[in-house]
Amino acid sequence: MAAPRSVVIDVGKLPRDVEDEDGSAKEEDDAKKSRLDRFPLSRGEMGLFFGVFLFFFVGLLCVYRTMPAAQYGKIKLPRNLSDLRLLKENLATYAEEHPVQFLMGYCSTYIFMQTFMIPGTIFMSLLAGALYGVVRGVILVVFNATAGASSCYFLSRLIGRPLVTWMWPEKLRFFQGEIAKRREKLLNYMLFLRITPSLPNLFINLASPIVDIPFHIFFLATLIGLFPASLITVKAGLALGDLKSVRDLYDAKTLFVLFLIGMLIIIPTLVKRKRTIE
């Protein structure tokens, strides 16, 4: 009779496998928790943000409720040039028949998007050119862009410091250093930044109150400095059918002109610094 075959069970293996699985799950949970812990805004700041957002959103809804009925299924925020061309066709007659109500809706939407950093304001600027022409279009765009940037400035003053420090730490340190060196000619430097694409407008709006740029300087630089870029965008809106891409708005020639204008504005600051050093 054959001897029974012995079976050896490694009792240490099963608990180890279970332990490895538990360890992996724990590490994954810790990673998720770490990502949440790194988010810079506290619950109070998040509550404040959503409170401001709700206030603006309700105001926007109230404006839309006062507007005459329209085929809302054909009206949506444009995300590309095709959407914009279709929107222009749908809104042209409406804007002529209800000019005041349409302007209220347009301005409210533009300022809302600018305040809460919602992409797409460039399409709104193109739409202004397509519907209103150069002069009225530029005035409309500069007004709304300045109002929206000002709202974003004050929102950042409330809760922006931890968010900007978290998102752009290096860029914020650089900006703060440049502002500190140009306090005496701060308006010139801010005009340079607004006219040229040296720093994104979104970053300027959020970072300006953090680096202690006075609001009147921020407001004037925005109001005046956005004029050249607004003129380019609005003029492009007149020839919306010929525009192939948003990138075509700022070709090498256009960027050269913007930087040239910016350099002419910042020259007094550079001369002042040179004399101070000497």
Results as ranks from 00 to 15, higher is better:
Gly44Val: 05
Glu178Asn: 08
Leu48Cys: 11
Thr222Cys: 15
Leu223Met: 12
Ser108Gly: 13
Tyr110Thr: 00
Leu60Arg: 10
Pro200Arg: 05
Ile204Arg: 01
Val271Ile: 15
Gly73Phe: 06
Leu270Thr: 02
Cys62Trp: 09
Leu131Val: 04
Phe256Met: 12
Asp242Ala: 13
Phe49Glu: 05
Cys62Gly: 03
Glu97Gln: 15
Lys26Phe: 08
Arg194Val: 08
Leu91Phe: 10
Lys76Thr: 09
Gln114Ala: 13
Phe53Thr: 09
Arg85Gly: 02
Leu186Asn: 04
Val52Met: 15
Thr93Ile: 11
Tyr189Ala: 06
Asp30Arg: 13
Leu193Pro: 05
Ile75Ala: 00
Trp168Glu: 07
Phe116Gln: 05
Ile75Arg: 03
Pro15His: 09
Arg183Phe: 09
His98Pro: 09
Arg136Pro: 03
Ala2Ile: 11
Val134Leu: 13
Lys32Tyr: 10
Glu170Lys: 14
Ile139Leu: 14
Ile159Gln: 04
Thr269Met: 00
Ala95Thr: 15
Pro169Asp: 08
Gly23Pro: 01
Val134Gly: 02
Met67Tyr: 06
Pro214Thr: 12
Arg157Asn: 08
Leu172Gly: 07
Leu231Glu: 05
Leu14Arg: 14
Ile261Phe: 09
Gly23Asp: 06
Ala128Asn: 01
Tyr64Thr: 04
Met104Ala: 11
Gly129Thr: 03
Leu126Phe: 01
Glu170Phe: 10
Gly137Met: 10
Ala31Asn: 06
Asn80Tyr: 10
Ala70Cys: 09
Thr196Lys: 01
Val141Thr: 14
Arg79Cys: 01
Pro162Cys: 06
Ala130Phe: 05
Leu255Phe: 05
Leu186Tyr: 06
Gly44Lys: 08
Lys274Met: 14
Asn90Ser: 15
Lys33Gln: 14
Arg247Ile: 05
Asp10Tyr: 12
Ser230Met: 11
Ala239Met: 11
Arg85Ser: 08
Ala221Gln: 05
Asp10Phe: 11
Ser156Asn: 08
Glu28Ser: 00
Arg182Gln: 09
Phe102Val: 07
Tyr153Gln: 04
Ser6His: 09
Thr121Ser: 14
Ala252Gln: 10
Leu260His: 01
Arg5Gly: 04
Thr254Met: 10
Ile159Cys: 11
Tyr72Leu: 12
Ala229Thr: 15
Leu231Lys: 03
Gly129Ile: 07
Leu54Lys: 01
Phe102Trp: 14
Leu258Val: 10
Thr222Met: 12
Leu202Gly: 03
Ile277Val: 12
Leu270His: 07
Glu184Pro: 03
Pro68Ala: 05
Glu184Asp: 14
Ile179Ser: 04
Asp37Tyr: 00
Leu77Ile: 15
Gly133Met: 03
Gln176Asp: 14
Asp251Gln: 08
Phe55Val: 15
Tyr106Ser: 06
Leu240Phe: 06
Pro169Gly: 11
Phe154Ile: 11
Leu193Ala: 05
Gly148Arg: 01
Cys152Glu: 01
Leu81Met: 07
Arg183Leu: 12
Ser125Tyr: 01
Ala252Val: 13
Arg5Leu: 13
Lys13Phe: 15
Leu77Lys: 05
Phe116Asp: 01
Ser108Trp: 00
Gly59Gln: 06
Pro99Tyr: 13
Phe154Arg: 07
Thr93Leu: 13
Ile111Ser: 00
Glu178His: 13
Phe123Cys: 01
